[in-house]
Design a protein around this nucleic acid. Structure first.
Lengths: 377, 377
DNA sequence: TTGTAAGCGTTATCAG
DNA sequence: CTGATAACGCTTACAA
């Protein structure tokens, strides 16, 4: 047993030799056990076990034309692409623990106090991803997770590895996706309808915002509302429109001016909010495009010594776990995230029915009333 | 454009033909751009884009001998293997929504109220998984997630798809793993040391339990303690031993009798606990092997009209988010889960240093004091 | 600088 | 029931 032989991954040839059969019999032993006599099958399986043979998925995928894997591509959201060579984690600034030093790695080298923040995990994408994973497991399909800038190459790389791809689209991914759509099925999460070949899984943003508008006006008598969000995402645009329409139905008008916030922090938000406060122009309610935005607003208000719901009503959208935990707890519109992830997996696996036409699955969201609107959450 | 041509995934041959070059040039255009003239490279890339060409990872993996992917295998934990054909979700009993019916899928068909329980997500494995994913993304490596009974076939299938495999070991996976270890690097999470070829990432269970014992005795004067857990997992065994040793150091003895609990529920637990209560033999503290066990204990106590910490002190282990949210909030020992996941990914990717000897990375856990031990959390 | 051709480890189609 | 043998799509010497 030479060094090379010890570490090389055994192949059908090795097993065939060991079991004194042809490579076809080895393959059959795994894929079509019925086409082999009990004796040879056992002999092959035994030899395979002895050698530690694991069929190469690459070779099978090549021969068979499909990998069996379903993919989920998340573009870098909160995640700065870390420099893997750097000694320090760019997210936390702490240096990476040495893993080969022996002994116990002290707690203060693990960043855990920084990292265990529910505002960072689990987010909307994480809960959708979980649904996707659970359904894939139920379907017996491995899941391939990838991330990247959403550029051609990162999407192409993923597309080459899977039989179907679910993706949280960003403006940059659109052109790349259009190219691979004819080739593999693609599911877009939370993308506005369009005349393309992609499948869609999304929520009724307009309906959700209608429900919220209704609550704010009817239960809290609110008549002066501003929207907070970045108008890049189609989700945000829909939510803005839904809010405006919902308010209009009740004779309330939404302020034209949108408070612009980034997901990353309150950099843009603080000065804008501060301006409104200084001018005495703070509205009665700040309706935010996402929970993340709402947290940024809550923080910015606190920095000015103001609190929701006493000084201003604040609401979110998504219904993440963090919304339950924030202080005050956040009134929000919850998406059925796990169900959305599951739906995507079923579509890609062909378990949702024939895909002759693109699926456009729209889920109803649900208003979750808590403290930040003035209710007793 | 025949039907077949429209949907077949384009290959190097198609691109070569389109760009009027050889297949080698196509390959070079992607892998070794420097070996091609600017003109041809551009021509190839343009043709590839036009055709929607995505290099097949299977073929590349086969030719190159490695897939580039890192794997994470989770055995079915809470997850009953669902029957994907069934109309109803076996976990919730609710029927699956039809995805092709059109219209908005009503909220009550999404199971979301059942599914959004922090006791079910994120758990220990989820936070470790997240760390693994984040580090893989930072390293530019796709992640392959799989799950299964931990039988030979499910592990072998995963092993055939990845360059390295991290795994939450169960008693059943051990023999299968031993077979593939020579072939690909394997990281075991939370496995007791042993003389095998696997890498290990774990916490100092004994140290964590020492800290807990210390707190219970010194801060709360506790002198009568029982351990709750299933003694199957090596983690549990270590924690039990650590607790016993920590208490003994302070002259306190741990009850011999272990309260046996399943993770799934309080089926076994309730009668045992009820027995102790009826006999007036409830200890001062119930130290549980995991947060999950502690929740089961809390529920069982509540069913008997008892509450922690007034009637009995209860503690957990892991430090999941749910421990923060439970009522009373749970005193526990937190593992640096994200750091552990990251460490595993770095080891498998070769970013942690040469792996001539197996890594055995031990992290320090941290005592988190909350209400359930009697402190003011 | 570009093209030719030999693998890589399966699966599947034939004959035997 | 078993064994040759030809794909599958890509990478990479090596040749031109």
């Amino acid at each position: 047993m030479s060094e090379a032989d010890a570490t090389r991954r055994p192949t059908v040839y090795d097993v065939a030799q060991e079991a004194k059969v042809s490579i076809a019999s080895v393959s059959f032993a795994f894929r079509r056990p019925d086409k082999l006599s009990d004796a040879t099958r056992e002999r092959v399986l035994e030899a395979a076990r002895r050698l530690g043979y694991a069929p190469s998925a690459a070779a099978r995928g090549l021969a068979h034309g499909r990998t069996g894997t379903l993919g989920l591509h998340a573009f870098d959201l909160l995640l700065e692409r870390a420099d893997p060579i750097a000694e320090a984690n760019p997210l936390t600034g702490l240096s990476r623990p040495r893993l080969d030093a022996g002994g116990v790695i002290p707690w203060n080298q693990t960043d855990d106090d920084v990292l265990s923040d529910p505002r960072a995990f689990p987010l909307y994408v994480d809960e959708v991803q979980r649904g996707f994973e659970l359904e894939c497991w139920a379907l017996g399909r491995p899941v391939m997770l990838s991330s990247g800038a959403g550029t051609d190459v990162s999407v192409a790389d993923t597309a080459g590895r899977v039989d179907g791809l679910a993706i949280f689209p960003s403006p940059q991914t659109a052109p790349a996706l259009a190219r691979y759509a004819p080739t593999i099925p693609i599911v877009l999460f939370s993308a506005a309808p369009a005349d393309d070949r992609h499948h869609r899984v999304r929520v009724d943003n307009v309906g959700g915002m209608h429900a919220l508008a209704d609550h704010l006006v009817r239960a809290h008598g609110i008549r002066d509302v501003a929207f907070v969000g970045r108008m890049e995402a189609s989700d945000t645009v829909e939510r803005h429109a839904g809010l405006a329409a919902g308010l209009a139905d009740l004779g309330v008008f939404l302020r034209d001016e949108v408070v612009d916030a980034t997901v990353r922090g309150e950099d843009d938000l603080v000065p804008q909010l501060r301006g409104l406060i200084a001018d005495g122009r703070l509205p009665q309610a700040l309706v935010c495009a996402t929970d993340q935005h709402a947290f940024a607003v809550l923080d910015a208000l606190a920095a000015e010594g103001l609190r929701a719901p006493d000084d201003v009503v604040v609401t979110g959208f998504d219904g993440t776990l963090a919304a339950r935990l924030s202080s005050p707890s956040l009134t929000t519109v919850r998406q059925p995230m796990e169900a959305m992830g599951r739906a995507a997996a079923r579509i890609l696996a062909g378990a949702a029915g024939p895909a002759d036409r693109p699926f456009d699955v729209v889920f109803e969201p649900r208003l979750v009333v808590r403290r930040s609107c003035g209710c007793r959450g």
